[in-house]
Simulated assay, not measured.
Amino acid sequence: MHAEFVTVMYHYVREIQNSSYPGIKGLEFEGFQRQLDYLSSRYEIISADQLIACLTGDAADFPDNACLLTFDDGYRDHFDYVLPELVKRNLSACFFPPAKPIEDHTLLDVNAIHYILAVADDVEQLSRDLLDELRTRDFSEAYLTECRDRLSEPSRYDPAEVIFFKRMLQRELPFELRSEITTSLFEKYVGKTEAEFSKGLYMTTDDLKELIREGMYVGSHTYHHFWLNAVDEETQEQEIDRSLQFLSRIGAPTRNWIMCYPYGAYNQETLEILKRKDCLLGFTTHVGNSILDPQRALQLSRFDTNDFPQ
């Protein structure tokens, strides 16, 4: 079957203006409620089970106007705000938590960066602080200039200066160094340790088990939340294996399971690993309708919440 459907991607969903971090980029809870009204009036919200049944041939039919809701990164927002709203509306959705921050109370670099940016008044000063950190580690001016020229390109959601800061700390620098610098800047700007902050940001394993009991699907978002296309094949396989072990511990499916690529990043090696591991579906960050073609089922597109009225 080559069914077509809409998938919506969410991250932070909370009462942002009344929170301790009103500068965080996310979806206000009231906007989420209005968006669910909008989507429910135009689409049939489907579950992961319906999607899997369609692909495996166990479903007699599939809605022409199907819509799947997906929530990335395992935020506590999803338990406090999203789950009660979905249960109240008798809706199901997919949740994709990375394992390490939930089990070890660490903070993903990507989230540390989000909160640094949320509290920083001057992004240019932030970039200067980053460059100063690198100069103390003997990085050459030529290298730093080349990085600025290459990475300072605006994206769909962020200006060039923000993209430069994010890319340097998300993937350009060696993993241990970028984590060290991110931790330093986080403690300077946010004023908390990553360990204490982590416990309030992510769901617990008990929260995830409750999601499953309420009929939600919990799938893989890897272990560390690396850019999979920026690490070698052995590391990719370790990331996926450790995530599957985590899913098994919380009672989530590990047969005909669903993958969600951190940052939407993957390569051919990723796809080959997933095929060997009995993965059925994979979600990217490519923008567009999802086409349920068995030949492309590991490269499904998604829309962002900002692509729909709120």
Rank of each mutant, 00 (worst) to 15 (best):
A53G: 10
F32G: 13
V119R: 01
K88V: 00
E124V: 07
L39K: 08
V13I: 13
F308W: 09
A195N: 13
S140I: 02
V110T: 09
V13L: 12
K275G: 08
D73I: 01
M9T: 09
S155P: 04
V190T: 03
S47F: 06
I291K: 15
T222E: 07
R249K: 15
D293T: 05
P84D: 04
A99P: 00
I45S: 00
L107E: 05
K100L: 01
E4S: 14
R89L: 09
A60W: 03
F95Y: 12
L144C: 04
E176N: 07
S290Q: 06
Y266E: 06
D293N: 15
H114Y: 02
H105K: 15
P174Q: 01
F95Q: 04
S155N: 09
A142R: 03
P159R: 13
V218I: 13
S179W: 09
D207Y: 07
K275F: 03
T204E: 09
T222M: 03
A297L: 06
V82D: 02
F197G: 06
E214C: 14
L27F: 09
R137N: 08
S155F: 07
S290D: 05
D307V: 01
H224I: 00
K188Q: 13
F175C: 00
D58I: 03
D232H: 12
E172L: 13
C279R: 02
D278K: 10
A99I: 03
T145R: 14
E210S: 14
L298A: 01
F79I: 06
L300V: 06
D72R: 08
E239P: 01
E153K: 14
Q170A: 10
R14F: 08
